[in-house]
């Protein structure tokens, strides 16, 4: 499991969402409502000190998808 996925899963645990894995679908397996997904983005923004546009969600289904997109944003910020 990569470091970013671990961070997301920890944030989900803090939101009382248990049993998330990198393969978990955010709206399917974890049954997150849209506001919870937005809250997850806000928490990850604060943790990673990077702005995560809401449009990122168009590319995201699973925890791993989100981890990959946030990783790209962090890398772009440091370029």
């Amino acid at each position: 499991m990569d470091h970013m996925s671990e961070k997301i899963i920890k944030v989900l645990k803090d939101m009382d969402i248990e049993d998330a894995t990198p393969e978990s679908s955010l709206m399917g397996d974890l049954e997150l409502e849209s506001l919870q997904i937005y809250e997850l983005l806000a928490e990850m923004e604060a943790l990673c000190s990077v702005r995560i546009p809401e449009r990122v969600l168009l590319k995201v289904d699973t925890v791993q998808d989100l981890a990959d997109e946030i990783t790209k944003l962090v890398e772009k910020k440091h370029d």
Binding site: M27, G28, S34, E54, V60, D61
Partner: peptide, 14 residues
């Protein structure tokens, strides 16, 4: 699932 990804989260078929 692919169709849902072209939609904002609030409009996805859950």
């Amino acid at each position: 699932r692919k169709m849902n990804q072209s939609l904002p989260p609030t409009h996805r078929i859950v």
